[in-house]
Design a protein around this nucleic acid. Structure first.
Length: 363
DNA sequence: GAGACGTGGGT
DNA sequence: TACCCAAGTCT
């Protein structure tokens, strides 16, 4: 750890800080579905869902997921299709596939008990340094750091740490700090209190310092630089992609395609679509050619029915939506034909749910 | 280490 | 409107 930081920590009132923080947490903590007990499986599921995702978004997904898969065994025995369906709309779908895979691993290798050993935990798919620490501290009350964005923001302010939190190696500095200041008696509450403080009081913009239970310990508050911290370098602008998508119908059947098992929206279902390029060929023509060449579908495509934008972290799809009729599918491949009712069993990305809504509005 | 990987909400 | 963000992990 940095020498300056070491010196600062020597003067830090660790015991009173812990007491002030824990007292506030026990008074103010939110009543959340995953705080009803300390079942390691539920802690695990909640921590995966909460990655890069707001509490209010997670709540309904967590309740429904636990109802459907109440135990390790129940989830281990489920089909991936079912698990993805339960995750539909939550985003970052590799989390669902990794969780499913890791739960099967726990059932087979550890007899269905979530490991309380850091070395075993970090081998499981989808469990990185943060989630490992969260499970160890929250489910097993072990004094391990669980450093997420909240903790880096809160701690960077309290100790005026000016390292760039966008850089991966910066997390290690915060883990060292937490090992120094964590409550050995109440590591679970301590870690959760730090995150709760970040969510409710020590917010990214306009933090409520006057309501903060630990402001007397906060160097950034005393120096008036709380808005300058944490330091986080900008991310670059993302790229735009033009897409043409088709809702194809023949008799009572719709045509859907399963995305590849790797990459963006892996293993989710979608309406047939392709990236289009600006040029002499219209989007409609490019789409018809694609459907013929890629999927062996002869179709008649109508005029542009509408557009839908799908913004990801790293790119944007600008989707032109077309409706069409299939003339001949005897040579068809890589496509499932399903009725409207059957479609409910398949997980679609939000943009493709919108595509179908558009279709239903117009027919 | 930088970029991929979703979605919805806040300013 | 156009960012930025929210309990990160994988490649």
């Amino acid at each position: 750890m940095e020498e300056i930081l070491q010196k600062q920590l020597m003067h830090f009132q660790k015991e009173t800080f812990q007491r002030d923080l824990l007292e506030w947490y026990r008074r103010e903590k939110r009543d959340l579905p995953w705080r009803k007990d300390q079942d390691p499986y539920k802690v695990w599921v909640s921590e995966i869902m909460l990655q890069q995702t707001r509490v209010d978004t997670v709540k309904p997904f967590f309740n429904q997921f636990i109802k459907k898969f109440p135990t390790i065994e129940a989830l281990a025995e489920a089909d991936e299709e079912e698990v993805l369906k339960a995750w539909e709309g939550l985003g970052y779908y590799s989390r669902a596939r990794n969780l499913h895979s890791a739960v099967k691993e726990v059932k087979e290798t550890y007899g269905g008990k979530v490991p309380d050993d850091p070395k075993q935990l970090e081998k499981l798919k989808g469990i990185g340094p943060y989630t490992k620490g969260a499970i160890l501290s929250i489910a097993y009350n072990l004094p391990e750091p669980a450093v997420d964005g909240n903790v880096m923001r809160v701690v960077s302010r309290i100790l005026t740490i000016w390292e760039d939190i966008a850089k991966p190696k910066t997390r290690k500095i915060f883990e060292s700090v937490i090992r120094e200041i964590i409550s050995k008696e109440h590591p679970s509450d301590f870690n959760q209190a730090l995150m709760e403080l970040g969510a409710l009081v020590c917010t990214p913009t306009s933090p409520s310092c006057l309501l903060c239970p630990v402001r007397k310990h906060c160097a950034a508050y005393h120096e008036g630089v709380e808005e300058e911290l944490p330091v986080k370098t900008k991310t670059k602008a993302h790229r735009q992609v033009q897409i043409a998508a088709a809702v194809l119908k023949k008799d009572d059947f719709y045509y859907i395609h399963k995305r590849p098992s790797q990459g963006l929206l892996a293993n989710l279902w979608e309406f047939p679509n392709c990236e289009t390029k600006r040029g002499n060929l219209s989007q409609k023509k490019q789409l018809e050619q694609f459907l013929q060449q890629e999927y062996g579908i002869e179709s008649t495509i109508g005029d542009l029915a509408g557009t839908i934008q799908h913004v990801f972290s790293h790119l944007t799809w600008n989707i032109s939506v077309f409706f069409g009729h299939v003339k001949n599918d005897t040579e068809m491949k890589e496509i499932n034909k399903v009725t409207k009712d059957e479609m409910n069993q398949y997980a679609f990305p939000v943009s493709h749910q919108k595509i179908f809504s558009l279709y239903q509005e117009q027919s």
